[in-house]
């Protein structure tokens, strides 16, 4: 992320590496222990999640590897643990370490997918609203206002519930990943649209836009090639927060039974399936995926905080 944003900002003469080394962002990153730690944790989790077929001792999708007799075994530090299952097993006898790895992968996939979708929608609508103004602006911002006043989570829950009710739960759970990306993407676009619109309004009266217009370029080209690159830093800042939000939304929807089915683990559906067994004392089934979720979201949020401090135009003009 840091390379791309800097290469677009600095002048052309020095090499890409030198430009990054001299940038304020790299300087701030070198001196911020929290940001370094968070980035390290986040990268480790992403690598572990996407390498889950290599790292996980068992495949949770392969029913032959699941031993129902070995259900609800505790993790290694508690008496009665089985050494085959380092973090214990869930109520169906699946190895918790394996399903947490696979589940994190699904959660990250939905988080990134949903954020890409909302960014596409939100940036397009935000550019149109800010640059074209007039009726388009009024209508789009009115829609965004209503959707935001209903809260994005509420919209996601309602849309999820309705889609599930129309299509039937079997169909819904079959395409759950796509559905969740669509629902969370559609529910959260106003965040991007508002941010982009605000920076477009600040940019569009500058001289380079006038120059481009005088040259006779079409407004589509001016919007995407001239104005958009100058609104990138707020987009980066909210993207980190939005990824964290999307992962939480996925977990919340799955927890309500409107997301991933229990046979197809995500962090949310693991927490949900473990919650049914918490009263019988098997706390690890729900709290271990829960802890993974919190660490993941926390590291993204802290990175977002750091990025906002670095890119805040009031503190530093990039």
């Amino acid at each position: 992320m840091s390379t791309t944003s800097n290469s677009s900002q600095a002048s052309a003469s020095p090499g890409r590496w030198e430009r990054m080394r001299d940038s304020y962002m790299w300087y701030s990153f070198k001196h911020d222990r929290t940001a370094q730690l968070c980035l390290a944790v986040f990268i480790c989790m992403v690598i572990a999640a996407f390498a889950s077929p290599l790292l996980a001792p068992t495949d949770p999708y392969d029913l032959a590897q699941i031993d129902i007799m070995a259900s609800e075994l505790p993790p290694f530090w508690i008496e009665g643990a089985d050494e085959r299952y380092s973090l214990g097993t869930d109520a169906q006898g699946r190895d918790l370490w394996s399903i947490v790895l696979y589940g994190t992968r699904v959660s990250l996939l939905i988080g990134f997918g949903a954020v890409i979708l909302q960014a596409l929608l939100g940036v397009t609508f935000g550019l149109m609203a800010g640059y074209l103004g007039g009726r388009v602006d009024t209508l789009l911002m009115w829609l965004a206002d209503i959707q935001l006043s209903f809260s994005t989570l509420m919209v996601a829950i309602v849309v999820g519930a309705l889609v599930k009710a129309t299509m039937g739960s079997a169909f819904y759970s079959q395409y759950a990943v796509m559905m969740l990306i669509l629902i969370i993407g559609l529910a959260e676009w106003p965040q991007y649209a508002r941010t982009v619109r605000a920076s477009v309004l600040a940019e569009k009266n500058k001289e380079y836009v006038d120059a481009a217009r005088v040259m006779g370029l079409r407004s589509k080209r001016i919007m995407f090639r001239h104005v958009l690159p100058n609104t990138m830093s707020p987009i980066f800042v909210i993207s980190t927060v939005q990824i964290a939000n999307a992962i939480i939304s996925e977990a919340a929807l799955s927890f309500l039974g409107l997301g991933m089915p229990e046979t197809h683990p995500s962090l949310g559906s693991l927490i949900k399936s473990g919650f049914d067994y918490i009263q019988s004392g098997s706390w690890w089934i729900t709290l271990i995926p829960g802890a993974v979720l919190v660490v993941l979201v926390l590291s993204i949020n802290l990175l977002g905080d750091w990025l906002r401090d670095v890119m805040n135009p009031r503190l530093y003009k990039g």
């Binding site: 964290a244 927490i271 009263q279 709290l287 829960g290 926390l298």
Partner: peptide
């Protein structure tokens, strides 16, 4: 508070149940 923002509400609820109810 930043940890609090990062914990989804249902997870807080589950942790509270574990600590104070179970």
């Amino acid at each position: 508070s930043i940890i609090g923002i990062s914990i989804p509400v249902f997870l807080t609820a589950i942790v509270l149940i574990q600590i104070f109810a179970i």
